[in-house]
């Protein structure tokens, strides 16, 4: 009878401990997934801002969204505020001239190794030497 009672107490303690551990782990996982979603949406927001505004080629009259001007890469501020939070990012542009793959960059600060990052690659057009090349804009974003 004493052995059964001891077993009951032990199993109850184990159950309670497991419940607490599982609750804490699930809460942490939820926080991590929320941070990933926020980072992913912030990366989308930053990439869109780059392609339609900050890197967009502007001729004498008007800006051309989705057409990137590589000369603007040097003047870019590689830190944006999205939804009240600060994000750092790095930019790389690869373009295809019909024969070979050319790369520009990376531009911006070094990607931190100890932080969660999100990498987003978008198809764009690069204006170089007065020609329009199909290109890929790769943005690596992290929370600062």
């Amino acid at each position: 009878m004493d052995v059964t009672r001891l077993l009951r107490v032990l199993m109850t303690i184990l159950l309670v401990a497991t419940f607490i551990l599982v609750t804490v782990a699930t809460y942490k996982e939820n926080l991590k997934v929320e941070a990933m979603v926020k980072l992913s949406d912030s990366a989308s927001s930053i990439a869109t801002r780059l392609t339609v505004q900050d890197l967009a080629w502007t001729d004498a009259r008007e800006p051309h969204p989705y057409v990137l001007d590589p000369d603007r890469l040097n003047d870019l501020n590689y830190r944006y505020a999205v939804g009240g939070d600060n994000f750092g990012f790095q930019v790389r542009i690869s373009y295809w001239d019909g024969g070979s793959d050319e790369n520009l960059g990376p531009y911006g600060p070094k990607v931190p190794e100890d932080k969660m990052t999100d990498t987003l690659t978008l198809p764009v057009t690069l204006r170089k030497n007065c020609r329009m090349f199909p290109a890929r804009l790769t943005v690596v974003v992290w929370h600062e």
């Binding site: 990933m36 992913s40 989308s44 990439a47 869109t48 989705y66 057409v67 198809p123 764009v124 329009m132």
Partner: peptide, 24 residues
């Protein structure tokens, strides 16, 4: 929760692909 975020990025890729083909 991750799935809608991935879908939003795909939507963005689709929009950018259209524009890339229109301009390149």
């Amino acid at each position: 929760q991750l799935e809608p975020a991935i879908d939003r990025q795909l939507e963005l890729k689709s929009e950018h692909l259209y524009q890339a083909l229109k301009n390149s």
